[in-house]
Each structure stands twice: as C-alpha cells, then as structure tokens.
Amino acid sequence: MTFSEWLDFFLPYVPGFLHASWLVLVITVLVILVSWVCGLLVALGKASQIGVIRQASNFYIWFIRGTPALIQIFIVYFGLPQLGLGLSPFVAGVLALGINSGAYVAEIIRSGLSAIPKGQVESSLALGMSRVETLRRIVLPQVVRIILPSVTNEAISTLKNTSLLSTITVVELTLYAQTIIATTFRPFEFYAATAVIYLIMTTMLSQVAAVLERHNARYV
C-alpha cells in the first residue's frame, strides 16, 4: 500500500475513531468519579468504630479484588435486571467499573493516610488547630503527593478497562474497531490503530501525572 492508498483506506473511519475515543474519555472520567466516592466511603468504613461497617468494607474489597472485572460487569448488566434493576449498557458499565476501581482507590487512600506520622497530627492539634484544619493543611497535602503515582496507575487501568464494556454493547473504541473489522476484514490494521489510540491516551495521562509529581517534589 502506498501512503495515499493507506490514507484513503483509514480516512473514512477517522471521525468514528475520534468519537469512540471521546466516549472512552467520558466513561473514564465518570468511572473515576464513582470510584472516588466508593473509595472514600470504603476507606472511612475500614477505619470505622462500628464492626459491621468495617466488615462490609473488608468484604467489598475482598470480593472486588478477588473476582474478574468482566464478571462484575456481567453481574451488574445481566444480573441486576433479574432483581428488577435494568440499567442501560452505559450506566451499568460506568457503575460496574466504578465499583471495581473503588476497591483499589480505597486501598490507595488507606495506605496514603497511614504513611503520615501520627506525631504531625498531634503537633497540629497541640497548637490548637482543629481536626478539619489539620486534615486540610497537614494531612491531605502530603497524602496527595504520596498517592499520586498509584492514583495515576489506577486511572490508566480504568481507561484500559473501558474496553471490557465492548462486551455489553457500549460502542467505545474496542467495539467500534470490531464493527469495522466485521465489514473490512482487516483486523491487523484496525486493532493496531486502536492500540495506538489507547497508547496515546494513557501516555497523556502519565505525562500529566509526571508534571504534577515534579511540582510536588519540592520538599523531599
């Protein structure tokens, strides 16, 4: 294939790819939001005084980390309607991936919080600072720096996991590529192109994180 033949071959699919990539980004952002809500709740739950809440949080983390994401997606999309809760593929997918990622986010938050020496909180309280001020001024700025690399990794996993939603008819990048391949019979070219697009998106994510990390590395 010459370059212009190659261009002619791909060009018609460019808008479709762009649209599907956009959808991947939208899903990723929504999943991250859901996962942080779940993650914060579960991290708090694990530190709770109340035994039942602590056990529920531990169960959630144990279940999510011990089962494949694909099965979790199937439970939400195919399983819940049986209990009377039918969700659109998009909503089911965002929920399932968010709940999945939330377990990992909870662990990230917990490890970040436990990395702050207790004495720093004590010295803040001993000066008359309130618990909220102590959390906001002393604890969180350090936790953010500590967990940033894990948060980036989790966001990248989330972005890649969106391709699992192709199995429940969300026309994101992977399913879009499959539909083209079904008509063109060119799996190598289109899966390669799809991989490149995923790579561009994940690389951008880690670049953003690298910039933030450098900004945060002043005091070590």
Binding site: G119, E122, S123, A126, Y219
Partner: peptide, 15 residues
C-alpha cells in the same frame, strides 16, 4: 491548647 506550647521528642515538623 493555643495557650500551652508543646514540644515533642520527635520534633514533628510538617515536612
């Protein structure tokens, strides 16, 4: 606490 200063063995400065 605002009127009582406390200094600890492990300094506990905020890094």
């Amino acid at each position: 606490r605002a009127r009582i200063g406390m200094v600890f063995q492990s300094y506990n400065l905020w890094p």
